[in-house]
């Protein structure tokens, strides 16, 4: 067989262009395996045809590729560790930074919420602490007052006068502590009925048989400091209108006690 003539017959071009009939094609495939020159001639025409086609290429509209990538989207394997390293890297970096940004944003929200609730709790604690501190101050003051009252009650320079309930008011009781040096008068209202809102108890000192105002009794913890009374033979408490009266209402006398 004349291989050179066969190669020059045009059968190779016909085969490569897909125009050969089945029998011709089978024959050529068979011969190409036996004769490297034929294989070489086929390869040569294929390469030339490809070169020609590439140089005569006409770019299709871009949306065709986009459409194809969408159509085949489910068929691609998961993004390979790309053979094109720089491209892959960039993609992964971009993906990683998006993920980091999202994590960071989520953490921001989380920490801000945490911060808000902690801040609220802190404010509440601060208020509670101030309240406790104030309460503590009050209690300390009261304790100090009670301590000084106790000192007064047990001081020998103080004269203690018990004012006992009068007839019909036997349950009532009050005690005077009278400083024999300064002549200051302190009252302990042990038991007196609750006064009406517009009434107030008033202490009287009886001096030379006449009642002298020794002050109205305010709500006081422990001992109430009354007016200074230089001398008196007796003390008594009456219920008067709020603010006190210039003279006692004798019918409203609750307790009384003689000095000495």
């Amino acid at each position: 067989m004349d291989i050179k003539a066969y190669i020059e017959s045009g059968v190779i071009e016909s085969y490569v262009l897909g125009m050969a009939e089945a029998q011709e094609a089978a024959e050529l495939e068979q011969l190409s395996r036996q004769h490297p020159e034929i294989r070489k001639a086929i390869d040569g025409f294929e390469a030339a045809l490809e070169q020609q086609a590439l140089s005569g290429a006409i770019a299709p509209p871009v949306q065709i590729k986009e459409q194809l990538l969408i159509t085949l989207a489910d068929e691609f394997m998961k993004e390979e560790e790309s053979s094109v390293i720089a491209f892959g890297w960039f993609r992964y970096m971009a993906a990683a930074s998006v993920i980091l940004l999202m994590v960071s944003a989520a953490l921001n929200v989380y920490f801000y919420t945490q911060f808000r609730s902690t801040s609220t709790a802190y404010q509440a604690l601060l208020v509670e602490k101030n309240t406790l501190f104030a309460d503590n101050q009050t209690i300390q003051t009261k304790a100090l007052e009670l301590y000084s009252n106790m000192q007064m009650m047990s001081d020998p320079t103080f004269q203690k006068i018990s004012l006992t309930g009068l007839k019909g008011k036997e349950n009532s009781l009050a005690t005077i502590f009278w400083d024999s040096k300064s002549k200051d008068v302190y009252l302990l209202p042990n038991k007196l009925p609750q006064a009406a809102a517009d009434k107030q108890y008033q202490l009287w000192a009886i001096v030379d048989g006449k009642p002298v105002d020794a002050g109205v009794i305010d709500a006081c913890a422990g001992l109430c400091k009354m007016k200074n009374i230089p001398n008196a033979s007796m003390f008594a408490i009456t219920l008067e209108k709020k603010g006190g009266s210039p003279t006692p209402t004798l019918a409203q006398m609750y307790v009384a006690g003689k000095v000495g």
């Binding site: 086609a53 290429a57 993004e79 790309s82 053979s83």
Partner: peptide, 17 residues
């Protein structure tokens, strides 16, 4: 997918023609 894209970029013009 990458290689499909490459194939398209390199040969779509020739085949389109």
């Amino acid at each position: 997918r990458h290689v499909f894209s490459y194939l398209y970029d390199n040969y779509s013009g020739a085949l389109h023609s």
